[in-house]
């Protein structure tokens, strides 16, 4: 493995970590709202969140490239903020990945929140716990398996991203050239040995992630699909 491969691995882990943390921050309130709301819009928002599950990455990549470019709304906004344009940058990849992995965080969380039901929250309220206190002392411990599944799946899914990155990344070493793209480049250049090393790493990594998830959390992972 050369410096480029190691750089790609480090970049991928960094990207997946940042995305997972952001998704915990933004995904939790979305999942909470989806789990508790009686609004008629629940279906609409639920569908929007789930879109990346079914959309080809090229659709997301195409829209993001246009939106974040100099003529797009997002691009105009980031330029106005003095941040420059997002395509071909690490923050750009982070934003794309947050969208792309959103359902992998929100759906396990939403299921975990729904499984808690009203009663523990009502009990907490009768004990005069504030909503904030209830969330941290009741919801988070009870929904721990959901947080674990969501974080692991979001992390792993971001590591496995390829199409979106290929479209908006620009393949820059140590900035946007993640492992999946690096493998693709090796294969295109007939460097099968290097491709094998990285591909095998990905395979082992993905297996270990899922193994951890299913061993630590066997019933809950199954339960969330009910």
């Amino acid at each position: 493995m050369d410096a480029n491969d190691l750089g790609a691995i480090w970049l991928t882990l960094k990207l997946a970590s940042v995305v997972t943390i952001l998704l915990l921050l933004f995904g939790t309130p979305i999942a909470w709202w989806l789990a508790r709301t009686r609004s008629k819009l629940k279906g609409v928002f639920g569908a929007v969140v789930a879109l990346p599950l079914v959309l080809p990455p090229t659709v997301l990549g195409f829209y993001l490239l246009l939106a974040m470019g100099p003529n797009g709304l997002v691009g105009k906004f980031t330029e106005w903020l003095g941040l420059g344009l997002l395509p071909f940058t690490f923050p750009g990849l982070v934003i794309a990945s947050v969208f792309y992995s959103l359902p992998f965080m929100v759906q396990p969380l939403q299921n975990a929140f729904e499984a808690i039901g009203d009663r523990p929250l009502e009990v907490a309220a009768t004990l005069r716990a504030s909503p904030w206190d209830t969330f941290w002392s009741v919801v988070v411990p009870l929904a721990k398996p959901g947080f674990l599944s969501g974080a692991v799946l979001a992390f792993a899914h971001t590591v496995g991203e390829f199409g979106v990155v290929l479209m908006i990344g620009g393949n820059i070493p140590n900035k946007t050239r993640v492992v999946s793209v690096q493998i693709y480049d090796h294969v295109e250049a007939l460097e099968y040995t290097q491709a094998h090393v990285l591909a095998a790493c990905m395979l082992v990594f993905s297996f270990l992630v899922l193994l951890t998830l299913y061993t630590l959390n066997p019933n809950k992972v199954k339960g969330r699909e009910q």
């Binding site: 490239l65 246009l66 974040m68 344009l85 071909f88």
Partner: peptide
């Protein structure tokens, strides 16, 4: 296409 969209 990167140039056409203005991103480069």
């Amino acid at each position: 296409q990167y140039v056409q969209t203005g991103n480069a």
